[in-house]
Design a protein around this nucleic acid. Structure first.
Length: 470
RNA sequence: GUCCCCAUCGUCUAGCCUGGUCCAGGACACCGGACUUUCACUUCGGCAACAGGGGUUCAAAUCCCCUUGGGGACGCCA
């Protein structure tokens, strides 16, 4: 059985790149009936925060990426890590190093200046030193050999061990380093497939050497390409929102984000739309591309719009309501909300947009857009509106055709286009010139609200407004 | 600087492994048309790419090499 893992460090929120890595691991495990485990890489006590862990778990849950068992905290396994370090020490595969950080840094700078790679020079390697305050334990890299592995995504990769220096395994504070902890944990947790970000490619040969020194079999490695911003630089805050929860707040659906993230790098022929279940069935690392990809919010919008259209009006109501409630709006009843959603569902790309477009249904009197009011509620516009209001009071249209006829009759009576009649009414009812279909609005608002809004708009004083503007 | 990786429309990608069916397909975005009382939706059509140069071959987007470009890594961070 395969075991995959997602191993975030709780030093921040779950970002887009991490979410995709998590998704790929999850898809791989679920697709093959394996396990997907979560490991919190909190070896850095300074930067790790429990609140970040909780935020990451919340984001995972929102995306629907469930993990098997309880999350494993790396910090709870330090003893295990130290045992493995002791073993390496005993086997002569590691040694104590007393070099001062400043000296090492100086040597790095020198090496860099000389055009070389800034790596540790192995000063303490053969000194046979013992424990000392401020000392660290380093891995004794084996002599020249080529380290290579068949990367599940990138294909064969090989590195000359000459390039690798003696990395620190135990820090001077007595805690293990990332590279040691990862290897020990993946090993002891039985992880079979390590799917992680591209930025770890350089760690892999070091870790392979550690596996070998520990006498362990190698897991499979796969490195997923980075996600870039529009300028092709690594995706970061300056490109806009990067955290998964920020997308939730902006009104994106988890299905949309999952679908988008999956298609960013992975493909299955020409198919664009995938449910999570479908992805589970179809996902394969072989179909993941090797090159980095640019994050494209437009396409995410398109997918989000697609999934919004797929969502029932009742469900949409539940999802959109928080945004409406935040504006202190009230809702007559759940049915009203669902009806409103039905009319805006195809007009917005995010839940936030839906809330904006549906707000007028819930406002006591939607504020008239000043520019549009000035343009439409002229003396003739108001005259038309008064007439429409009268007609509506006399016979409130029960069908789309009835409204159509009402508007048509008025238009031809005054020898104007339908828009001349319809737009002032639209403005009166919604405060805007762009809105759902008039009949739907009429039908949902009902005669009473419609009459209120028309009367309120009729009170608009074009001349006064002109004066105010001047 | 050194090492590793990558390279098809503006973007995500199919095709590349197993050369010919590709004057390169799909999607997003963009531009037109249709629909229409607004805005959308939908629909029809359009624009748009094999980074450059050498090979190999009857034939290369597909294989090889170089150049260029991009990304990543080089921590007692993860």
């Amino acid at each position: 059985m395969i075991i995959t893992r997602f191993a975030p460090s709780p030093t921040g929120h779950l970002h887009i790149g991490g979410a995709r890595t998590a998704l790929f691991n999850w898809l791989l495990a679920r697709g093959q009936g394996g396990q997907f485990v979560l490991r919190v890489e909190d070896t850095d006590a300074q930067r790790s925060k429990e609140e970040h862990t909780q935020a990451i778990l919340a984001a995972m849950s929102w995306l629907g990426l469930d993990w098997d068992g309880e999350p494993v905290y790396q910090s709870a396994r330090f003893e295990l890590h130290r045992q493995h370090i002791q073993k390496l020490l005993a086997d002569g595969r590691a040694y104590w190093c007393h070099c001062r950080p400043e000296d090492i840094e100086a040597k790095r700078q020198e090496a860099l200046k000389a055009g070389g790679k800034p790596r540790y020079d192995g000063h303490c390697r053969e000194l046979g030193l013992g424990p000392a305050p401020g000392g660290v334990i380093r891995f004794k890299s084996p002599p020249t050999q080529t380290v290579s592995w068949p990367d599940l995504i990138k294909g064969p990769i090989s590195v000359d061990s000459e390039e690798l220096d003696d990395l620190v395994l135990l820090k001077s504070d007595g805690n293990p380093t990332y590279n040691l902890a990862v290897v020990v944990d993946d090993l002891t947790m039985g992880v079979t497939h390590i799917i992680r970000g591209d930025d770890h490619v350089n760690n892999t040969p070091r870790q392979i050497l550690l596996y070998q020194a520990l006498g362990a079999n190698l897991p499979q490695f796969g490195h997923v390409p980075m996600i870039l911003g529009q300028d092709k630089a690594r995706l970061s805050k300056r490109h806009g929102a990067t955290s998964v929860m920020a997308y939730k707040e902006m009104g994106y659906l988890p299905q949309a984000l999952n679908n988008y993230l999956a298609r960013l790098g992975w493909s299955h022929g020409d198919q664009e739309i995938f449910s999570l279940q479908e992805m589970v069935e179809l996902f394969s690392l072989k179909r993941v591309g090797k090159s980095a990809s640019v994050f494209n919010p437009e396409k995410l919008n398109w997918l989000n719009a697609h999934y919004i259209k797929q969502t029932s009006t009742e469900e949409l109501g539940r999802l959109v309501w928080p945004y409406l409630a935040a504006q202190n709006l009230t809702c007559p009843n759940p049915g009203y909300l669902a009806q409103a959603m039905a009319t805006v569902r195809e007009r917005g790309k995010t839940l936030v947009e839906l809330a904006e477009k549906a707000a007028f249904y819930f406002q006591a009197l939607p504020p008239l857009n000043p520019k549009d009011a000035l343009k439409l509620l002229t003396s003739t516009g108001l005259a038309y509106l008064a007439e429409v209001g009268q007609e509506l009071r006399r016979a409130f249209p029960q069908t789309h055709e009835a409204l159509d006829e009402l508007l048509k009759n008025l238009a031809s009576a005054h020898n104007v286009k339908m828009g001349q009649i319809a737009q002032p009414l639209r403005l009166a009812l919604t405060g805007q010139t762009a809105s759902p279909g008039l009949f739907d609005i009429l039908n949902i608002l009902g005669p009473e609200r419609v009459n209120q809004r028309v009367q309120a708009a009729l009170a608009f004083k074009p001349n006064q407004a002109e004066a105010d503007r001047a």
